[in-house]
Design a protein around this nucleic acid. Structure first.
Ligand SMILES: [Mn+2]
Ligand SMILES: [Mn+2]
Ligand SMILES: [Zn+2]
Ligand SMILES: [Zn+2]
Lengths: 135, 135
DNA sequence: TTTCACTTTAGAACAATTATAAACTATAAG
DNA sequence: CTTATAGTTTATAATTGTTCTAAAGTGAAA
């Protein structure tokens, strides 16, 4: 993903392409593989990468804006930090609790044969499969 | 589950059956259906139920002790509170984000046909299926 | 009964996140 | 270009969930 696309991505979701948002978006979206992160880890990586500092509040704001715009998703991981995911397609995860590392699993690589029907009056929105790993 | 079993359960896991632990264990384990809770919700329910107050620190201590003893499990739910579960068997969940309610799914009611193999050097510990609901 | 390791407790400390409000800036209008 | 302004960033305070501390209390072994 090129910088011009970053600008388009921001503008098309009603987000002004500010210096900070562009830096964060470049960092998050100009990569080939999915990136899973917490705000804390993103902050550390950005501090290392960038000369100028982006305030922590801005990182929170931006990540939430990107999520609201559908450019990031949230992954549920044990512990009390929130994990985000640059893969916004429906997919699943391996989770290595030793390293706290998430690995994507393509939705097509998981086939579920049997699933209970949703409770009365409810529908199934989506199914998430979480595979815990050990050594 | 009767009180005598509660005492056995505590003693057999090396936990002295103190007044507080017995009250909490009775509240958690003397029921037919699985109970999903956060420490906050448990605290509120206990305050309502009991005449004497149990300190929040004790509720945290006790829940952690019960979890360590294998009497409770932890469920991953979006948000930054930790959810606990009186069902310690391998099972799955429906999650209704409208009401923040978890509903158990018996392991045998989910059959997975295809799953990717674990990454190099890792093994699969367990598979958790999380079914998000909508109205 | 006495003793003491284990437990409870109030409150402090800590960690993650959100709110506040003042300074700053992208951009649209003139 | 200027200017006006709504949107944005920032430092910092506030809030929330959880863990730590250390003093007082208690279950149970002897
Ligand atoms: Mn989490
Ligand atoms: Mn959680
Ligand atoms: Zn992912
Ligand atoms: Zn459950």
């Amino acid at each position: 993903m090129k910088k011009i696309d970053i600008l388009k991505k921001l503008r098309s979701s009603g987000l002004r392409p500010t210096k900070q948002r562009v830096e964060i978006a470049k960092f998050l979206f100009e990569r080939d593989k999915t990136f899973h992160f917490t705000v804390e880890s993103l902050n550390k990586l950005l501090m290392r990468k960038l000369s100028s500092k982006i305030s922590l509040a801005t990182i929170y704001n931006t990540v939430h804006s990107f999520k609201a715009a559908g450019h990031l998703s949230e992954v549920e991981v044990r512990g009390n930090k929130t994990y985000f995911d640059t893969n916004v397609l429906n997919h699943h995860h391996f989770y290595d609790s030793e390293t706290s590392e998430l690995i994507d699993i393509d939705a097509k690589d998981v086939v579920i044969q049997k699933i209970p029907k949703a409770p009365n009056g409810k529908k199934i929105k989506n199914v998430e499969v979480f595979i815990n790993l050990k050594n």
